[in-house]
Write a protein that binds this DNA or RNA. Structure first.
Lengths: 173, 173
DNA sequence: TCCGACACGTGAACC
DNA sequence: TGGTTCACGTGTCGG
């Protein structure tokens, strides 16, 4: 069959075009082996997986200073292909902090995979592991960061008398 | 040639083994097309490249509240294969803040690709784009974060009278 | 000459 | 039966 011959040729072209595209995306010239190229790709993807598992540790005890942290490996997907990243907020505690936080997560369509909360000496720290839609992952990260920032400002401006209250760091080993 | 035949077979096995490995790493089953698999790989690598360019915006004007931010895509490598990430520190200004910062960067063997500094109303914000060795990227990020935290605590404890000095946010639109 | 990598066409297997 | 994907062996080019 001539049909068969051409179909196979198109299949090869499809595969090779993807390989060529990978050659342009990775740090390698256009004349690297097909096998070596794939080896580099494997290495790259593995690094992402590795960092995914290493993103998991963050401080959970509230500190005296206000903090916002948004950590993303940019490549750690859940099983369903959503982008997973970690956000941490440390600030003065207040009664409506959690509702505000939940509202932010809902408005950004972020799914909360895990949440840790700790309060100590009037201060609180929230560590969230959230998943974002793949299409809006970057926007979600930036929006979340800005939202947390405004949340922090809100806490400070609503009760400025608390700003000096935290525990003395020397007492916390 | 029998030699030729077997050599070609080994070559195919090498390529296919890498493809199989990619199949286990990506969200796809073991029975996906070779071409489709590569298409997903391309998509993934492209996302990383994209996020690399989008990490670049962070607030540069000092805010009234203390802040530490460490942002990493985990996949944005410079041309030499080092991990690039962004760190931001906002706190009260003091004369030896920059030297301390430089000392931290040196001790962590972080190469500074870009640095922005702004001071306003006695407060300062430093935005750094740094590159870390690929092998110690995660450790570097965590160490940097902790170091910045201690730096911030040092600023507050060394001159706590400054803590209330900043500009009123309402004046800054 | 030999060795490595590649594209090609073909038969087989699977909906 | 076609349509599609894969593995295989072979011819060829370059070092």
């Amino acid at each position: 069959m001539k049909n068969h011959k051409e179909a196979e040729k198109r299949r090869r072209e499809r595969i090779n075009s993807h390989l060529d595209e990978l050659r342009t995306l990775l740090p390698c010239n256009s004349k690297t082996d097909k096998a070596s190229l794939l080896a580099k790709v494997v290495q790259r993807v593995k690094e992402l997986k590795q960092q995914t598992s290493e993103i998991t540790e963050l401080e959970t005890v509230p500190s005296e200073t206000d903090e916002i942290t948004v950590l993303s490996t940019g490549g750690d997907y859940g099983s369903d292909g959503r982008l997973v990243f970690k956000a941490s907020l440390c600030c003065e505690d207040r009664s409506d902090l959690i509702p505000d936080l939940i509202e932010i997560l809902n408005s950004l369509h972020l799914k909360t995979l895990k949440a840790e909360m700790a309060t100590l000496g009037g201060r609180t720290r929230n560590v969230l592991v959230v998943a974002a839609d793949k299409e809006h992952s970057i926007e979600s990260i930036n929006f979340l960061q800005n939202s947390l920032k405004s949340l922090l400002d809100r806490s400070n401006s609503s009760d400025r008398s608390k700003r000096r209250r935290g525990l003395d760091r020397r007492l916390m080993s």
